[in-house]
Design a binder for these strands. Structure first.
Lengths: 201, 201
DNA sequence: CGAACGCGCTGACATTTGTCATCCGCCGGA
DNA sequence: TCCGGCGGATGACAAATGTCAGCGCGTTCG
């Protein structure tokens, strides 16, 4: 019997997936969490075999939870399930010790299969997400470029970005200009959109 | 026995919800669709009692499907389930004849209850979403302002927006300026974000 | 009918932006 | 040791954007 911890902020989805997994003979959902912190707490208490984590959780995101679990409870395998698969997240997840990564577009049978695969020590990455990650490539942005672009993504004017990043307005414009060049965008707002769609920020 | 048509683009979620609803004695999922067009096709063929539609579908969105069903198959009640509840969608949905509107944060019992309520001719709107809709108020944007702002939301420069909207660049800037004023934003990009968060575009 | 209003346009102006050259200090690798 | 790259900054200039005033046209409503 494989003991599973399930984390997803949407109650309906969480309950529904739990019901589906519970139908399998060899799987048992022993805990459900709605937030990252709760997932960690439950994992410490319940010591599940596999943690199935949604990527977007209210506090810590799924990858952060997985990374924490990887060091704290190495026996607990982790896998991520997500609606919007961004290439950057996949890379972060794999370096964080995640062994399974798949979109919510898969069927329940595949999910159950992957749970078993992961529990047995194997790995599984959604082929479509993997292809996107490979085609998107590594982020060409430097750390500060990414910082500044993240702030710019909210539509703030340069002066505000400068204040929030504790930089000179001129420097902000330089970084933005560089980021615009690297993303082949027409302006920083498009650059922010592109970088976000690639998971670079 | 209440016959249900289920539409959601995410296979895992769709199957999971179907499994949950199927556990109820008086509910039966007779069809599942992954797109809006498929949902319409199935509805015509199967004549379900209730259509449970996800808001975001690849082609037609849930509200569009509901509106079409409302005129074409008035006997089929419709309800919307959504992850990101934007106030504008709720309003559109209600004018489109939708009788139930709830977030995916609700529990399965509530979903089943609402299906029964809707089938019996009642209405149900998620209290939290209703509160947000009321506090957000009506859109202050005129039709063209909303059009232009929608195009601007993608980060395109004014010239491109003008071409795509078949307007003069000067006119585009006037509309954007007006929209910026109405949303109390610092620039059009922030205005686009605000309008989107309120469901105005 | 006339006023009000939305749509669409123009022109002018001040700001904000994007871009480029150039500078400094620091750190890591050849 | 020296070079290159990154973080950070300045100044200057061109282009894009935001703002305002004002004009014409059609529709709607009192």
């Amino acid at each position: 019997m494989i003991r599973i911890l399930l984390a997803d902020d949407e109650h309906l989805i969480r309950g529904a997936i739990a019901a589906l997994l519970g139908l399998e003979e060899d799987l048992e959902v022993v805990g459900q969490a709605a937030t990252g912190a709760e997932a960690l707490r439950l994992a410490r208490a319940l010591r599940p075999d596999v943690a199935v984590l949604d990527l977007q959780l209210p506090d810590l995101d799924g990858v952060a939870v997985a990374t924490a679990l990887h060091t704290e409870l190495p026996a607990c395998r982790t896998m991520i399930v997500t609606s919007h698969g961004l290439p950057g997240h996949l890379k972060r997840a794999l370096t964080g010790g995640v062994r399974g990564f798949l979109g919510k577009t898969v069927s329940a049978e595949i999910l159950a299969t992957v749970v078993r695969t992961v529990h047995a020590g194997g790995r599984y990455v959604d082929p479509q997400l993997a292809a996107e990650a490979i085609s998107a490539g590594d982020s060409p942005l430097t750390a500060r470029e990414a910082d500044v672009l993240t702030l710019a993504a909210e539509g703030a004017p340069v002066d505000e970005i400068a204040r929030r990043a504790a930089l000179s307005p001129g420097t902000v414009r330089n970084y933005l200009s560089s980021a615009v060049g690297k993303t082949a965008a027409a302006n920083r707002h498009e650059a922010a959109r592109i970088a976000r769609s690639r998971g670079w920020i």
